[in-house]
């Protein structure tokens, strides 16, 4: 996409420079400029791009294929998560989400007050947390590690600090929780 746009920008600028420096010649053909370049060229680029977008969009939609389900509840200003714990039982945590690597994760996102948005930049797209509805986003992390997440929709005074982390572990090797703040501890 980046290379494509750079090429288009260069093309337009070269055309402009050429139009400027061109020695006196014959006039321009209206159909070449408006229909050829304006409609034909642009349509071709767009159809390819939008088609690709549909295809990728379809592929990353959540679907019922037994993905791990976790819940994320946003509030002013923090995140509460519920995920499968080390023993398979649901585990509630604040500001930290634990998910296994290499499997698709469906995150059910909701909010208790205003609109927030769940976003882990290195793992994929964002999804808004809207009061009154549950939105599902699908993520998949290939490499274990700690990933940073944040609230991407402006939500008031604490917006800048509404961060969380996602800890991705090897399936079956749930990290040690003893030195982490979990659901039991209030802030």
């Amino acid at each position: 996409m980046l290379i494509g746009s750079a090429a288009i920008i260069a093309f337009v600028l070269i055309l402009l420079a050429w139009a400027w420096r061109r020695p006196e010649g014959k006039g321009a053909d209206e159909r070449v400029w408006t229909l050829g370049l304006g409609v034909g060229f642009v349509m071709a680029v767009l159809v390819a791009l939008v088609g690709y977008g549909f295809w990728v969009g379809e592929r990353i939609l959540p679907r019922s294929d037994g993905a791990v389900r976790v819940a994320a509840e946003a509030r002013q200003w923090g995140w509460a998560f519920r995920q499968p714990g080390p023993d398979g039982q649901p585990l509630e945590t604040q500001e930290v989400l634990y998910v296994p690597a290499g499997v698709p994760i469906d995150i059910e996102i909701t909010s208790t007050d205003v609109i927030h948005s769940f976003w882990v930049p290195r793992l994929g797209g964002k999804m808004d947390a809207v009061p009154g509805r549950v939105n599902v986003a699908r993520l998949m992390a290939h490499t274990p590690g700690e990933y940073e997440g944040l609230c991407a929709e402006f939500c008031g005074l604490g917006h800048s600090f509404m961060r969380f982390s996602v800890i991705v572990y090897e399936p079956g090797a749930f990290p040690d929780l003893s030195n982490r703040q979990t659901g039991g501890a209030d802030e």
Binding site: A28, W33, V42
Partner: peptide, 23 residues
């Protein structure tokens, strides 16, 4: 995406105008 087409038509018409004139 489609709305880019009429926008592009205008941009190319303007460049074409410069092309046929003496800017």
């Amino acid at each position: 995406a489609l709305v880019a087409v009429p926008t592009a038509v205008q941009v190319f018409a303007w460049i074409g105008t410069i092309w046929k004139g003496r800017p």
